[in-house]
């Protein structure tokens, strides 16, 4: 089974993005994967902004990224792009931090008009960091996420079905021979 790190890039403490990530995390855990969640808002702000990789929290976060077999990167869409919080963290990673890894991009936003941000803005950044395989991402409307009641997180049936497909494709990738070879290479490196 794979070790999966989930990054959430929302600065809000009560976050739809984190709720969405949690929904996908449940699928991964149910399949036996080892899941760790890193809410980037919990990192010390000054250390993130100054790229202080010697700071113990930052160093631990970077190690977690490098150690993971795969990542889920979840961000709110602000001004038609990923959040600044996500980008400041990605900026302090080594250039090849995602080498050999499968990545699932997730995004939340207020209007479907910003759906393409996942492919036009987030995907190129993940490519630049060396991701081996970026599986099909998913954009979820804010209105379809219930992050407050404690009940089901996704409240739209069509969205649940879409997310199931997205999540299943990512999990299938984690089982692929490519993924197992990459994990082996990382373990012996």
């Amino acid at each position: 089974m794979a070790s999966v790190l989930i990054l959430t890039g929302s600065p809000s403490t009560v976050s739809r993005t984190a709720a969405l990530a949690g929904h996908v995390a449940d699928d991964l855990v149910a399949e036996g994967h080892e899941v760790q969640v890193l809410h980037l808002r919990d990192l010390p702000a000054e250390a993130v902004l100054t790229a202080d990789t010697a700071h113990p929290s930052i160093a631990a976060a970077v190690r977690a990224v490098i150690a993971a077999d795969a990542l889920v990167v979840a961000t709110p869409i602000y001004k038609a792009s990923y959040s600044g919080l996500l980008k400041v963290f990605l900026d302090l990673l080594p250039q090849s931090a995602l080498q050999g890894k499968a990545v699932l991009p997730l995004a939340t936003g207020g209007t479907v008009a910003h759906l393409l941000a996942i492919d036009y803005s987030l995907r190129p950044v993940l490519v630049s960091l060396g991701a081996r395989h970026i599986t099909t991402g998913r954009f979820v409307l804010d209105a379809h996420i219930d992050h407050r009641s404690g009940g089901p997180v996704i409240v739209d049936d069509a969205t649940i079905a879409c997310l199931d497909r997205t999540s299943a494709a990512f999990r299938a990738e984690l089982r692929s021979p490519d993924a197992q070879l990459s994990a082996l290479a990382a373990a012996t490196a």
């Binding site: 479907v112 008009a113 393409l116």
Partner: peptide, 12 residues
């Protein structure tokens, strides 16, 4: 067909 591809104006 839908608003989903609105950003193509700005991104493409």
């Amino acid at each position: 067909g839908t608003a989903r591809h609105s950003l193509a104006v700005d991104h493409a």
